[in-house]
Design a protein around this nucleic acid. Structure first.
Lengths: 209, 209
DNA sequence: CGTTCAATCCCATAAACATGGGGGTGATTA
DNA sequence: TAATCACCCCCATGTTTATGGGATTGAACG
């Protein structure tokens, strides 16, 4: 038996999913809330759902913030987002907040059922569009090394900066003079239009070099 | 009609998938290679597959390196990994190399067909285990704020450092004295066991704060 | 009520950094 | 051959950091 909860402010949608799941063999959907506040008020550690279907656009506390709280208090609950939003920021924020699945609201009822089953079996249900956006997070379309104006030596020095080394230590590592390190760093600042190693490190770690 | 290619060194597996797809309505699988080298040698820009099913463990050049080259030369081809490996590193490397899907080798033939269709329709097919590991990349189980020894003010100052601001500018942004900024930074260095803002920025951007 | 702790400020000194200038070499290329 | 360009080195000057010492305030906790 899989125990499911749902947080959704639209009564029609919420009841529709709840009723559907309760008609399915092996499902029990007795946790139904229209806001995070209501859930936090009524949820009891003695009887927890395994899976929570979460809307994002809720009155009061947002679904994102709600998921953070829920995960903090009940980390064993699997959260799956159920939202109309498909922009990368919302997706990213949701996953960081602890969601392990993300379904768009156009998902048919029987696929919601499959998604819940997938979730308790260790999978991560995602609508195809969502999956694609998640993947694109790793390999953004904009190429990087093509646009990097830095020479190979300069890139070695950037590595040293990222590692938190002083000019002296970078010089030692590369077996060159500290004056040469200085020279290269001047070039790096000019080429990247920055004015300090802090910005170089930030750019580098963000993949902008 | 969907045009599919496959790179797989196991003749049995490769031919089995190829034959299966060629029996499907609307599929054409005429690009069949047992190594990256062979593919690079024979692939012609005039007749490209839309989707390439890629093994990772290949003789000669690895699937990961191969995908980088292929994406560089033919960015319009969608790559889907087909591998026994399910460790996070391989998954991560594959996605960074340009894969837009990742199937485990136990995937049945008809699901491979569905995956290819999903891919050309803008989705990202992933085996459930893989999807879960990708998701976990965003919200690693090891909590961060629990382990962060920094106070809220100190964290604000870290943000300033990451933004590349000088002590003076951080002081202005937070409306405090530069001396206070200094004080907090001393505490930060002590708590994080570092000796310079470069290391703080690195740690922060790696999510270690 | 005293202790602890985050947060706010001040001072002083040495080290590291930013920025400007000035030289060179060797390889590539127009 | 002259021009670029990556790479190497040196100097001088002023700014910013790192690190040590202080002090005060208010909120929180037992």
């Amino acid at each position: 038996m899989i125990f499911v909860g749902i947080v959704e402010d639209d009564d029609l949608i919420r009841k529709s999913i709840q009723d559907f799941l309760n008609r399915q063999q092996g499902f029990r959907c007795d946790w139904s809330y229209n806001s995070i506040e209501s859930l936090l008020l009524h949820l009891r550690a003695e009887s927890l759902p395994q899976v929570l279907i979460m809307d994002l656009g809720l009155p009061g506390m947002s679904g994102i913030d709600g998921m953070k709280l829920i995960k903090q208090q009940y980390p064993q609950i699997d959260l799956v987002v159920f939202s109309v939003y498909n922009d990368p920021q919302k997706i990213f924020d949701s996953l960081c907040a602890g969601a392990t699945g993300y379904l768009l609201k156009n998902t048919p009822l029987d696929e919601i059922k499959s998604a819940v089953e997938l979730l308790v079996n260790g999978g991560s249900p995602m609508s195809p569009q969502i999956a694609r956006k998640v993947i694109e997070f790793f390999a953004p379309r904009g190429k990087r090394e093509v646009t990097s104006p830095l020479s190979s030596k300069e890139k070695e020095i950037v590595v040293g900066l990222v590692d938190g080394l002083s000019y002296k230590l970078i010089a030692d590592r590369l077996s060159i003079s500290i004056e040469t390190v200085r020279f290269h760093i001047k070039s790096i600042y000019r080429k990247l239009h920055v004015h300090g190693k802090a910005e170089v490190i930030s750019k580098s770690l963000r993949g902008e070099i």
